[in-house]
């Protein structure tokens, strides 16, 4: 175990707006046990003084549940994309370097615009077609517990964007929808009625920016805070699109 330091030193990449150049600032705060990156940023916003005593604007960032389930607070912490709420200070190398989640446009400081994830989910048809949100007076479709266990892994995706940030194929100027929306296609295609629209979803991901743009670097699965088997989804979708292409080519019965 490292010796507990008496201070917390943060180096933060700041940016005043989407079109202004980034700059770095260093902050030093007193150490206290049980701090995580969000709680330190909270302490900092109360007294936003740089290490040389300059009063600056508080650092802007996103947070909500702080239980690693809403996905808001993902950022680059010591070079790795991860949720800030579960990044414990005492487990991080100092100075702690905070940068906005890469690949997404910066709004301000550590705040980024992740609407690309939402757009991706729309593109790939990541929903079940239901007749309407009313009671149909039927028992719900049965799903084997083994299938549930596999599906559940994917339904925990909180759109934090870590996988996309680490993906060498995703980013401004590229079409790739990224791993998170693809994994949802895997999930929806497995649902007993979601299966009905499997062909549409597969055709969606066979287009530009779809599955073929994955380069199999597999960083996504390494950085996913929820350990979602994204690359398994990608492999399974590879199989599904192969079969789909054969069906399209030779006709399906």
């Amino acid at each position: 175990m490292r010796e507990t330091p008496s201070t917390i030193e943060l180096r933060i990449r700041r940016q005043d707006g989407p079109d202004t150049p980034p700059y770095w600032e260093t902050f030093v705060l007193p150490h206290a046990p049980d701090h995580n990156v969000v709680s330190v940023l909270m302490a900092l916003r109360e007294h936003p003084l740089t290490h040389d005593g300059r009063r600056v604007d508080p650092v802007c960032w996103d947070h909500n549940c702080m239980e690693e389930v809403c996905g808001s607070c993902a950022m680059l912490i010591n070079g790795v994309p991860r949720p800030a709420c579960s990044a414990l200070i005492d487990q991080l190398e100092q100075p702690i370097v905070l940068e906005p989640l890469p690949k997404f446009p910066v709004v301000r400081d550590l705040l980024v615009d992740r609407s690309a994830i939402d757009a991706g989910l729309r593109k790939v048809h990541a929903w079940i077609e239901i007749d309407g949100a009313w009671d149909t007076h039927e028992p719900p479709p049965r799903i084997a517990p083994q299938q549930w266990a596999a599906d559940y892994l994917y339904s925990r995706c909180m759109s934090c964007g870590c996988c996309m940030a680490a993906c060498p194929q995703f980013g401004a100027g590229a079409d790739f929808v990224g791993p998170a929306p693809l994994a949802q296609v895997r999930l929806m295609n497995a649902h007993p009625t979601g299966r009905h629209d499997k062909t549409e979803r597969l055709h969606a991901i066979m287009a530009e920016g779809g599955l073929s743009d994955c380069g199999n670097a597999q960083n996504c699965v390494r950085v996913c805070p929820k350990a979602i088997p994204l690359t398994t989804a990608i492999g399974e979708l590879g199989r599904q699109t192969t079969i789909q292409a054969l069906k399209d080519l030779f006709g399906s019965s």
């Binding site: 929903w127 007076h137 719900p140 479709p141 049965r142 799903i143 517990p145 549930w148």
Partner: peptide
């Protein structure tokens, strides 16, 4: 009274409810 129907609707939406060995909720 309407809770069971609501659950059914959620399941139709694709909510991954935990399952019994028979595949029920």
């Amino acid at each position: 009274e309407q809770a069971p129907g609501l659950i059914g609707t959620f399941a139709r939406m694709g909510v991954t409810f935990s399952r019994t060995p028979e595949g029920g909720l």
